[in-house]
Amino acid sequence: METNLISVDDFCGHYKVATDFVTSLEEYGLVKTKLVNKAVFIDADDLTGLERYIRLYKELEINLEGLHAVSHLLGQLELLQNKIASLKNEISYYKQLH
């Protein structure tokens, strides 16, 4: 599968954050970087998540430990929301049958 990579330096420059921030996020397992020709990149698919961490960090002053906890809880929330959506779809499927 083809992936688009974004340089961490470019990303940090654009969002005015230190590259250490991305390194710390990686240490907490919140983002994965790739090393290509000695330059560090992030996957374009991870961009939305990374932008969210920056907003939470800058705007709500949530520290890295907090981001880690938030990420875990948002994951749980997504699972529950998916489960609800799936059950709703199932209900509408059975309603159509009757």
């Binding site: 939305t48 997504e78 929301q81 998916n82 799936s86 779809n89 499927y93």
Partner: peptide, 8 residues
């Protein structure tokens, strides 16, 4: 925001 959904 990204949305996600499940389809049976």
């Amino acid at each position: 925001q990204d949305y996600s959904s499940e389809l049976s």
